[in-house]
Computed example of a mutant assay.
Amino acid sequence: MQSRRAAVIKLFTSGKSRSQIAYLLKEGKMFISRTLKRYADTKSITDKHRPGRPRSVRTLAMRKNVIRQIRRNPARSMRKMAKQMKTSKEMMRRLVRHDIGMKAYKIQKHQLLTTQTKQKRLIRSKAMLLRFTGGLHKQIVFSDEKLFTVEQSLNQQNDRILAGS
């Protein structure tokens, strides 16, 4: 911000008009006007003192740290991040939602039907119909054994990930 303001002052003192400065720097005319007014009033281009309590927790360093953790593991709990950083859960939610612009959402189950999957289903269903026409379906044996899958089961209530909005 300081270098943009310094460039405005330098161009103005060299004799350029406000519209020429806006064109050269590709800045808005209001930014140029406010910078020149601030310089005329205070002879300085530094930021004005802002009233109120300065941020002590939701700082830029904290934001970068949270972004790094989310990139490493998007399914990480905001509660755990808050506990690790010794801050409140609400503050962590506010930082993620408002400062970073992300929100937690539930993973939804749905069938992935690509054209390749549809083609495979068609072939398999035709093959199954052929088996039933020959009476081979009566030779199928059912057992009470459990099939264990390698895939992890999905808990929609607890398994959430963070994503940009």
Score class of each variant (00 low, 15 high):
T87N: 03
S125C: 12
H49R: 06
K118E: 07
R63C: 06
D41Q: 15
R94Y: 08
S17W: 05
I32M: 04
A82W: 00
D159L: 14
I32R: 08
T59G: 11
R72M: 11
S125N: 06
K64F: 02
V66D: 12
R97L: 02
A61K: 03
T115W: 05
K16A: 15
K83F: 00
Q2L: 10
A40V: 07
Q111L: 06
S165V: 03
I70Y: 01
T35F: 06
S44W: 08
M81H: 06
Q111C: 00
F132I: 09
G101E: 13
T13P: 00
L162R: 01
K37C: 09
S125T: 11
F142I: 10
L60A: 13
N155C: 10
K83I: 09
F12Q: 07
R34W: 05
K138N: 02
M91L: 10
K106D: 05
Q156D: 00
Y39S: 04
R79W: 01
M128Y: 14
Q108F: 00
A7Q: 15
K86C: 05
L24I: 15
Q20H: 02
L24R: 14
L60S: 12
T13H: 11
L162Q: 01
N155Q: 08
L25R: 14
K10A: 13
V96E: 03
T46I: 07
I123M: 09
R94V: 01
S56E: 15
Q116T: 10
R79T: 09
Q157D: 03
T87M: 15
M81S: 09
T87P: 04
L25D: 11
R55I: 12
M128E: 09
L129S: 02
E90W: 05
Y105M: 08
R4W: 11
S143Y: 09
G135Q: 01
G28E: 04
G164E: 08
R38W: 11
N65H: 06
S3H: 07
A6E: 12
I45D: 12
T46H: 13
L112G: 08
G134H: 04
G135W: 00
Q116Y: 00
K43C: 14
R50P: 05
R34V: 07
I123V: 09
R131L: 14
F12H: 15
